[in-house]
């Protein structure tokens, strides 16, 4: 059963306030107040001096891989929100692998699940490791640069923050074992954001709630068994609505970083996991859900259940 072995993260110290986006996205003072008070979006992490390669590298460095661990890594999967993030043929993934002596690993990107691609990568890593030698490991990388308008701001919804996470995955292990994974692909939202936003917002909370309850059910559990939800940091009101629909207490959704980091692409899940462990919110044996959704010319709603 796929298990998380260790998580490394990097969040830069700089922040950009939501107000800094006002001119570029023609946000009115009223809209800015709604973002701060209603969606609880205040700022986003920002790393103006770091390249994508450096950002990912800092997350891998935070893992403090031993030589023995590095040698056991057979796969490196880079999960992305945006399919294209650097000019071709630049390849930050392989640059990071070279920097950390991981050339012996098969490294590739997986995606087209928008911000839910991180969960896809964990699931795929586990699948590959299931037929690898028992001591083999996989490394899942997440994190992107807010390099263009649509990678900085989702109208009426969220602002993206820069950061990265690196998650070491094993085929089995004593903790953070994956019990289920559900991905609901909604390719009908294959238009420009302004074209699909209305319908996407209409179904968003039901679809994300359905992914969560389906994953919990697939794990043979009920929502009352779930100690914590680790969400994507899209905004607070979205999770208020999801919780209301599925009947789950909002105070058990870890929303600590929404107002500060912003939505750190596919890295939210791992950043929030780190915080949950640091705050003592997960006890041995606790079941928890990692959930994410995203739209970017195609929408995906995903959830994964783990046992800590």
């Amino acid at each position: 059963m796929t298990a998380l072995v260790a998580i490394g993260t990097y969040v830069p110290p700089d922040r950009v306030p939501i107000e800094s986006l006002a001119d570029e996205f023609e946000l009115t003072p009223m809209q800015l107040r709604v973002f701060r008070r209603y969606h609880k979006l205040g700022s986003a992490a920002h790393a103006p001096s770091l390249s994508l390669t450096e950002l990912l590298g800092l997350a891998v460095a935070d893992l403090r891989l031993t030589v023995e661990q590095a040698a056991r890594i057979r796969y490196v999967l880079y999960a992305r929100t945006f399919p294209g993030v650097v000019p071709y043929p630049l390849n930050p993934l392989h640059e990071v692998c070279r920097s950390f002596g991981l050339q012996h690993a098969s490294a590739f990107a997986v995606g087209h699940h928008a911000c839910a691609s991180g969960l896809l990568a964990v699931d795929l890593a586990g699948r590959l490791l299931a037929s690898a030698p028992p001591d083999a490991l996989a490394l899942v990388l997440t994190g992107e640069k807010a390099f263009t308008g649509e990678a900085r701001f989702v109208p009426e919804t969220s602002m993206f923050g820069e950061g990265a996470a690196a998650c070491l995955v094993a085929a089995s292990g004593p903790r953070d074992r994956q019990l289920s994974y559900v991905a609901s692909l909604r390719g009908e939202f294959d238009g420009e954001l302004e074209e699909v936003a209305g319908e996407f917002q209409r179904i968003y909370h039901d679809a994300l709630g359905a992914a969560v309850t389906s994953a919990v059910s697939s794990a043979g559990l009920s929502l009352s068994d779930i100690a914590l939800i680790l969400p994507h940091n899209v905004n607070v009101v979205a999770w208020q609505r999801v919780c209301k629909r599925i009947g789950y207490p909002l105070d058990r959704v870890l929303l600590d970083h929404v107002a500060d980091y912003g939505h750190v692409f596919c890295a939210d899940a791992f950043l929030n996991h780190r915080t949950a462990v640091a705050r003592g919110l997960l006890q041995p044996g606790d079941h928890y859900v990692i959930a994410a959704a995203g739209a970017g010319r195609g929408a995906t709603f995903s959830a994964m259940v783990f046992s800590h």
Binding site: F82, P83, H112, H113, A114, R186, E188, R297, G298, A299
Partner: peptide, 15 residues
């Protein structure tokens, strides 16, 4: 990359 670098093509193909 193609001329839709922000598009989730495989998700569209599911549809």
């Amino acid at each position: 990359p193609d001329i839709s670098p922000g598009r989730a093509v495989s998700t569209y193909l599911t549809h």
